[in-house]
Simulated assay, not measured.
Amino acid sequence: KTLNLLSFFVVPHALGACAEVDSMTEAVAGQNFLLGCISCKRREEVSAWTTVDWHFRALGEQEYRHIFHYEHPTADILHEDFSGRLEWHGTMHTDIQIGAIYLSNVTFNDTGTYLCTFHRTLHLPVRNEEVTVEKEVELTVVAVANRELTAVISEIMMFVLIVVLQLWLIMVLVYCYKKISADHERREAKKALRAQEEALLESKDNCDGVQLE
């Protein structure tokens, strides 16, 4: 979701670049929300004149309400429920490919289906071609933002990694302790063996001295 949100801001400034990413679908009551809508042209070299309309169907209703219309450079809010709360965040040009709008002060009444419609006139050499593209955004308004699954998985993986590293460190410490202990035992064994050899040699010398007398 974060990637999608960033794409809406990055793509409009990228020359000749367009990516049809999906809009986010969960808003938090009392905060602002970007309703994303992108329709890329298949042939960038063809110029076009485009207008964008947004409709809204509240949860449990059957009919759409026409809430917003953009025809460069004019943006019109068409429904009183959204008065002063919608702002154009799409392409600032007649050849529109990004039709995003910014919804401020989200309420639970904003839950529902948003329909974004591109009306595009392609200026072709022989004759103009009319193209209509529709995209839906199912918006859910919640009191508190839900933690994303990726964030939860990341935290779990981090915890697992920490546990594994701790176990590995303990194993390394145990291995080093055993190796040091074994080396110490070998040194002590060599010392004891050397002491025994010296004692035997000393005993032999004493015995040789007695025989000589």
Rank of each mutant, 00 (worst) to 15 (best):
H79C: 03
D81H: 09
F82Y: 05
G84W: 05
L86T: 05
L86Q: 00
E87A: 14
H89R: 12
M92K: 15
H93E: 06
T94F: 08
D95T: 05
I96W: 07
I96G: 05
Q97A: 06
I98T: 11
G99R: 03
G99N: 04
A100M: 01
I101L: 07
L103S: 07
L103V: 07
S104A: 07
S104C: 00
N105E: 13
V106A: 02
F108T: 14
D110F: 08
D110W: 04
G112M: 01
T113K: 07
T113R: 10
Y114D: 03
L115A: 03
C116T: 05
C116H: 07
C116N: 06
T117G: 01
H119T: 13
R120S: 04
R120C: 03
T121I: 12
H123I: 14
L124A: 10
P125N: 02
V126C: 02
V126L: 15
R127G: 02
E130V: 08
V131L: 15
T132A: 04
V133F: 08
E134P: 04
V137H: 02
V137D: 10
E138K: 14
L139A: 06
V141C: 08
A143S: 13
V144R: 04
R147Y: 00
L149Y: 10
T150D: 06
V152W: 13
I153L: 14
I153T: 07
E155V: 02
E155G: 06
M157A: 15
M158W: 12
V160W: 08
V160P: 00
I162Q: 09
I162C: 09
L165Q: 11
L165S: 14
L169R: 12
L169Y: 09
L169G: 06
M171T: 01
L173K: 10
V174Y: 10
Y175S: 07
Y175T: 07
